[in-house]
Nucleic acid binder design. Structure first.
Lengths: 249, 249
DNA sequence: GCGTTCGCTTGATCCAAGTCAACCATAAAA
DNA sequence: TTTTATGGTTGACTTGGATCAAGCGAACGC
């Protein structure tokens, strides 16, 4: 009987090893849709688990790429540095999400991945993943979906950066975080931000002061309650309305 | 003897059929790196060739995804439409590039692909491509690289939208076009824009007036010569310097 | 040929977000 | 406990690009 309830399983301590088959993120992560037998083959591949301390790099732009990484727990940001010193956060990643897909293209990482809290990752050697996905159709297809999802996500960010104003961007950002926390079984309405205002700003193409002001404004208007990094969403629909602000003009 | 010089081959008229093996874009496109025998297997798969007239859609957001498309000739844009009517151009694609990768994720296209000039595409049924890439390692790997490259490209656009000012964006855009034309054997210094100022603006997160002003400014400063859609780049380094403008401030 | 349309350019004005600066809050260090 | 550092908030002002508006030029249909 392969099907236990994904997020509720009890694991005896003795069983814990680096294995997708007993990871409660498997429905969000690479193993999605695999049979028990296929899962075990994936286990063989995902052997190295690593802890990354808050502030440390998982990898750096320019390093040779040979593995992608699944986040087991914790929180990361990725950023790109331009020659002239400008940089931009290209994404925030949480448990169950994959890091490093950008490195496949040139066999070198093209961005930095930095832990925003103490985290744990599973390294997945890429050539072995390709090998296994030549044998397991489901794995292959799911991996393609994950890559494609990343492209779609990026288009969303481009949309945000290209057409939205500051408050719309922040509303979209909060709703996106909320939705992803929900998918992981956390409250959709209350969470701690792992990143600073400056990092949010960098991601949203705004200055930190603008982010701060937008937070204050949302609070004044009763959409959220902010206390430093602690966010409570009081009015989801208010935020959603803010996001589509242009519709009314 | 499989290796003829990629861009110089002569093809007798009788041989022309929809086939990667006699397409002179094969070194830019999906067949990259394949052996002659592998190429022939890809030929079987890429059977349908379609003409798309200027202004027509190749596919629309929401349609069921079942194939990706390689551009044989012509020029496309992709755009995303928000519920509230805002839209944004997410990319411009030219011969040898692939369209439709975003559709894998949800099995539905997430953007519109529209021909900016009369074009010709090869449809590649996706499930068959997955099948073949389970058998041909090189094809699998190259496909992964192409998807990854798309992610990297998107990060570049995010960078552009998030941190660059209007003139830097346009300079980056022109240099990127120039570089892609060069890769296809065209002049790096002289080309026709297939898109309007408004489409450029949408892609770059600017209004068409701003794009037009930046063109005029570049011309005044002797970086380029503009006449409607005809562009001549007079000073590549000038443009490059413009792009990294912040370095000096 | 001529009028119409569409895309492009240019000027004048306005405003959202950036910049600069002061100050506050929290947490860690002394 | 006070000190220091880091991150966050708020205010005053400046500015790059948006907006509004007028006019131009090339291409197309009739």
């Amino acid at each position: 009987m392969a099907q236990t309830h994904p997020l509720n399983q009890e694991i005896s301590l003795s069983v814990i090893k680096t294995a997708c088959s007993n990871c409660n993120l498997r429905e969000l992560c690479l193993p999605f849709g695999l049979s028990l037998e296929e899962l075990e083959r994936l286990d063989d591949l995902v052997s190295t688990r690593r802890r990354i301390k808050r502030g440390d790099h998982l990898y750096r732009a320019g390093e040779v790429f040979d593995a992608i990484y699944a986040i087991r727990s914790g929180f990361f940001k990725t950023d790109v540095l331009l020659e002239d010193g400008r940089d931009q956060v290209t994404g925030f990643q949480m448990a169950g999400e994959l890091l490093g897909l950008d490195g496949i293209s040139t066999e070198h990482h093209t961005c930095n991945a930095i832990a925003l809290e103490d985290s744990e990752i599973c390294a997945i050697p890429f050539s072995r993943l390709e090998g296994l996905s030549r044998e397991i159709h489901t794995l292959q297809h799911h991996f393609h979906k994950v890559m494609s999802r990343e492209i779609v996500r990026d288009h969303g960010v481009m949309m945000l950066l290209g057409t939205m104003r500051a408050e719309e961007r922040l509303a979209a950002f909060l709703l996106n975080l909320s939705q992803r926390f929900t998918a992981r079984g956390f409250s959709h309405a209350e969470f701690y931000l792992r990143m600073t205002r400056e990092e949010i700003g960098s991601y949203l193409g705004l200055k930190l002061e603008t982010v701060s002001r937008a937070f204050s404004r949302f609070q004044e208007e009763g959409h959220i309650a902010v206390q430093q990094k602690h966010i409570r969403i009081l009015n989801v629909n208010g935020l959603k309305a803010l996001m589509n602000h242009r519709a009314s003009c």
